[in-house]
Amino acid sequence: MLTDIHAHLHTKDFDLDRDKVINKCEIVIVEAGVDLESDLKVLELSRKYSNILPAIGFHPEYIEKSEEVEKILKLLDQAKAISEVGLDYYWIKDQNLKKKEIEILKIFLEEGEKRKLPIIIHSRGGNKDLINLLPSYKIKFVLHAYEGSTKDAQKFIDMGGYISIPPILLRDKNRQEIVKCVPLESIVTETDSPFMGYEKNQRNEPCNVSFTIKKISEIKKIEEKEIEKKIEENFKKII
């Protein structure tokens, strides 16, 4: 079975054909919220579709709306994972806001540990701080749409983490190198739908993880069916 450990199907990009997209192939999808409004939509989708697992979170790009976090935490009882949370130093440049990002992330890491919920982490420019933070928590975690160095990837794997690969792999040389270096036992697939597609400026969707699997197969010289089976096993170890 295909697995998409990180998608945003609640967005307006899918308003015209959401049902068709979700049921297009046999797949389990972790649907991630980014703020209070989207978290509520995630829960609504998970109640409607049996193949959608709800992930509740607060995206670091929304750090100026951090007053929402208290209400978001109350939704975690209904979640199968915590996401999307993390650090973003690409869009957020203000030092005080960066410190606030770390404070908020710590709250979610604590909740993940306490509730035994896996955490799917956004990191854009924040790997150094993440590498310092994560060892303090006993959690299952995934680096969503990982774009860092192979050296940092290995550090996350050594902590027990997983590296998530989106379909942009087909046109991203850095991620191809990451897949080459990272053991299959530490890889999961995602789409980040509607983003991170294999074709530029085209809407991404969950079933496109099949293209990721095909490319991983090509890079690692392992049969596609074996790749799909192992990634499903990894997924089940996390969620």
Rank of each mutant, 00 (worst) to 15 (best):
M1D: 07
M1N: 12
D4E: 10
H6I: 08
H10L: 05
D13W: 11
F14K: 07
D15F: 11
L16F: 07
D17K: 07
R18W: 13
V21W: 01
V21D: 12
I22Y: 06
I22R: 05
N23F: 10
N23T: 15
E26H: 13
E26F: 07
I27H: 04
I27M: 10
V30G: 00
E31G: 04
G33I: 01
V34E: 12
L36T: 02
S38I: 09
L40C: 05
L40N: 13
E44F: 08
K48S: 08
K48I: 05
Y49K: 06
I52M: 06
L53R: 11
A55V: 04
A55F: 01
A55T: 01
Y62N: 15
Y62M: 15
E68R: 04
E68I: 00
E68T: 01
E70I: 02
L73P: 06
D77A: 04
Q78M: 06
K80W: 02
I82A: 06
S83H: 01
E84Q: 08
G86C: 08
G86M: 09
Y89T: 08
Y89A: 03
Y90T: 03
I92M: 09
I92P: 09
K93A: 06
D94I: 05
E101I: 07
E101N: 01
L105R: 00
L105V: 01
L105N: 08
I107G: 02
F108C: 08
G112C: 00
G112K: 07
E113I: 10
R115S: 13
L117R: 08
S123D: 11
S123G: 11
G126H: 07
K128L: 06
D129K: 14
L130C: 03
I131W: 09
I131L: 15
L133T: 02
L134W: 06
L134E: 08
I139E: 06
I139Q: 02
K140C: 00
K140A: 03
F141P: 13
L143C: 07
E147K: 14
K151F: 14
D152P: 10
Q154I: 14
M159L: 15
G160M: 14
Y162Q: 10
Y162V: 13
I165M: 10
P166W: 10
P166G: 11
I168K: 13
L170R: 13
R171K: 13
K173V: 15
R175S: 14
R175F: 11
E177L: 14
I178G: 04
V179A: 12
V179K: 10
C181I: 12
C181Y: 12
V182G: 07
V182K: 05
P183D: 13
P183W: 11
S193E: 04
S193W: 03
F195R: 04
F195M: 12
N201M: 07
N204Y: 09
E205M: 02
N208Q: 11
S210A: 13
F211T: 06
T212N: 08
S217L: 13
S217R: 10
I219M: 09
E223L: 12
E224A: 13
K225Q: 12
I227N: 12
K229N: 14
K230L: 14
E232M: 12
F235L: 09
I238N: 15
I238L: 15
